[in-house]
């Protein structure tokens, strides 16, 4: 098995000043990302996600542990040619236009300039206007997508993305997600940090939770998603009364201004299907079905608590 990111027992402590308290950011972090997989890297603020990325980029030295990035020891410069990195809240030179940022990125990565391809990339990400607009005049969402574009121009093998959906509206979120799916389908490896479950649904293969500087839990995403449905809400109208769903475990019926709502709490497999069939048979017209899930942090934190209690 080939790992593009392999960290083992990484420790990092910040020493802010003589009289300030030391901060242990990474405490024996072990993390492996296989070639071709998409890894969701989760953790609350201050958990050490960004520190991990800085260690991978060689911006910080580790106190202990060893690691490899793209098969080379941490800090190796040449392998960064095969790496694309999007920081959280990306910042670029305000005097450059979007197109100039990509040209600069190509120059620094040692790949030929291709203005037409850059413009196509901007169009795909829904920011065609950013090509000729100075960075300082771009919105947060546009800047975020310029950031994504600059880490794709040199077609890297590994993409490290720190909160890639941050500041994006729902349409932009969809565009970026589509692009990331395509990158994954093209065989690229993705390591992305996020807080939002919807961002990583159908995208990540594995998720890992960083807590207090170490990986607290690591699990396959499909297994996790299957087990975290908190509630399914069915809305509709028609001659349906409370009795129709009374014997379904966890189901509750509520009349609304224009119809009714049936809620299923923590539904078992096939329970939603059975409930919908029964409602339709009773003469209901279904208007909508919404699945409510906990965000990944909540699930993970809940898991940690449960494990501690056990």
């Amino acid at each position: 098995m080939e790992y593009l990111v392999a960290l083992e027992g990484i420790e990092k402590t910040y020493r802010p000043g003589l009289f300030q308290k030391r901060v242990r950011a990474l405490d024996g972090l072990t993390l492996r990302v296989e070639r071709g997989e998409c890894y969701g890297f989760l953790g609350v603020n201050g958990a050490g996600k960004t520190t991990t990325f800085k260690v991978l980029l060689g911006l910080l030295r580790t106190d202990a542990g060893r690691g490899e990035l793209l098969g080379a020891p941490l800090g190796n410069r040449t392998v960064r040619r095969r790496l694309g990195f999007l920081p959280e809240l990306p910042a670029y030179y305000p005097h450059l236009t979007g197109a100039e940022v990509l040209r600069f990125a190509r120059d620094l990565s040692g790949v030929p300039r291709d203005d037409a391809a850059d413009r196509r990339l901007f169009e795909e990400l829904g920011i065609g206007v950013a090509a000729d607009r100075r960075v300082r005049r771009l919105s947060k969402g546009q800047l975020q997508r310029v950031g994504l574009a600059q880490c794709l121009v040199h077609e890297p093998e590994l993409l490290i993305l720190d909160e890639p959906m941050s500041g994006l509206d729902p349409i932009a979120r969809g565009l970026v997600k589509d692009r990331l799916r395509r990158e994954r389908a093209a065989g690229r490896t993705l390591l992305l940090s996020t807080h939002v479950l919807a961002d990583v649904e159908n995208l990540v293969d594995r998720v890992g939770l960083l807590a207090s500087g170490k990986l607290a839990l690591e699990e396959r995403a499909d297994a996790l998603l299957a087990s975290n449905t908190r509630e399914v809400v069915i809305t509709g109208e028609g001659a349906v009364s409370e009795e129709v769903v009374a014997d379904i475990p966890g189901a509750s019926w509520r009349a609304g201004t224009a119809g009714w709502t049936v809620s299923l709490e923590h539904p078992a497999p096939l329970q939603v299907d059975a409930c919908v069939r029964r409602l339709v048979r009773a003469g209901a017209t279904i208007h909508g079905l919404e699945t409510r899930r906990d965000d990944l942090e909540t699930i993970f934190i809940d898991r940690i608590r449960r494990e501690e209690q056990a």
Partner: peptide, 14 residues
């Protein structure tokens, strides 16, 4: 300060 170092040092720059 403005974090443009990320843009530079995520690339093969010595």
């Amino acid at each position: 300060e403005r974090k443009t170092l990320y843009f530079l040092f995520s690339r093969p720059i010595h």
